[in-house]
């Protein structure tokens, strides 16, 4: 476990759990969702149709997040900020740092153990309210991603070091649907050329055009403050090396509209020739206003 991240997470939690309410609070608790590893409001792996903040139609909101993924051979941290305006538009920025294992560093004779990627996201709510409208809330978004260096990407056969994902997401909360408990589900379709979210570049020898990947999340609100659920993210296979779909099971704690904390068990399958990448995902979102 990355101690620095753990420390930041725990300090951050303390500050936000005790701070007086300063966040936009025009939405119902939990309806702002969590922070997605690429910076968008969502679940952990999948972008949702809900926007990142607690802003109602008359408010704006801003939040920051820190996520840490620790699997067998890799570690990734993602930090970023998201703002949302009038429950209509969301802007986000995230920086991902992907840390490679020694075997890959020497195997590919790399000079740096890290791959960094910047992601700028835009999301627009097109229809509905996840809780109240008859049909699911629907949003469309994009994520523009840029690697800081194309060294690893080109070594594994990727065509470029930047790319843009486009997605449409639908989210619905069903009040009292499962024995009186609220059920939330989200489905997203993403057009992408990214290899391992873009960390291994875009396109490859097997495929160099956009493909639509399906992603989904389902969660159950056990109380106003606790959510358990699972996620699935389909992945393309553009490179000659194997890329697997991702899954996770998560538990989130949302004590108030200032902070949320998520822990998940993730299964990333084979990543960059390393098999069975399973481990822990930790994430915290703090809401500034």
């Amino acid at each position: 476990m990355n101690n620095r991240i753990l420390k930041i997470l725990s300090v951050g939690c303390c500050i936000f759990a005790t701070a007086p309410s300063m966040a936009a609070d025009g939405k119902i608790l939990a309806t702002a969702g969590l922070s997605q590893v690429e910076g968008s409001g969502g679940g952990g792996l999948v972008p949702w149709a809900t926007l990142a903040g607690y802003d109602s139609q008359d408010e704006t909101a801003a939040s920051f997040f820190m996520s840490d993924v620790n699997v067998s051979d890799f570690r990734m941290t993602s930090i970023g900020v998201a703002t949302s305006f009038y429950d209509r538009v969301e802007l986000s920025y995230a920086q991902q740092t992907f840390v490679l294992p020694e075997s890959l560093i020497s195997g590919l004779s790399l000079t740096s153990e890290q791959i960094k990627q910047d992601i700028v996201g835009l999301k627009v709510r097109l229809y509905g309210d996840a809780v109240y409208s008859a049909y699911p809330q629907v949003s469309a978004g994009l994520q523009y991603k840029q690697l800081d260096s194309d060294t690893v990407a080109s070594k594994v056969g990727a065509k470029t070091d930047s790319g843009t994902d486009f997605y449409v997401a639908a989210t619905k909360v069903h009040l009292g649907a499962v024995a009186g408990y609220n059920l939330i589900w989200n489905v997203a379709a993403r057009a992408t050329k990214a290899n391992e979210m873009g960390l291994l570049g875009y396109g490859g020898s097997e495929n160099n055009s956009y493909q639509v990947m399906m992603e989904g999340s389902v969660g159950l609100l056990l109380s106003p403050n606790w959510v358990v659920g699972m996620e699935y993210r389909q992945k393309p296979n553009n490179l000659s090396i194997v890329e697997d779909d991702w899954t996770d099971v998560f538990v989130s704690y949302l004590p108030n509209k200032n902070v949320n904390i998520t822990a998940a068990y993730v299964d990333l399958g084979t990543v960059a020739t390393k098999k069975d990448q399973k481990g822990i995902y930790l994430s915290m979102t703090g809401y500034l206003w």
Binding site: Y132, L175, G176, G180, Y181, S223
Partner: peptide, 12 residues
């Protein structure tokens, strides 16, 4: 909590 949700469901 489930009862609260079911009341909200009919009012929503």
């Amino acid at each position: 909590y489930p009862q609260q949700n079911r009341v909200l469901k009919v009012l929503a």
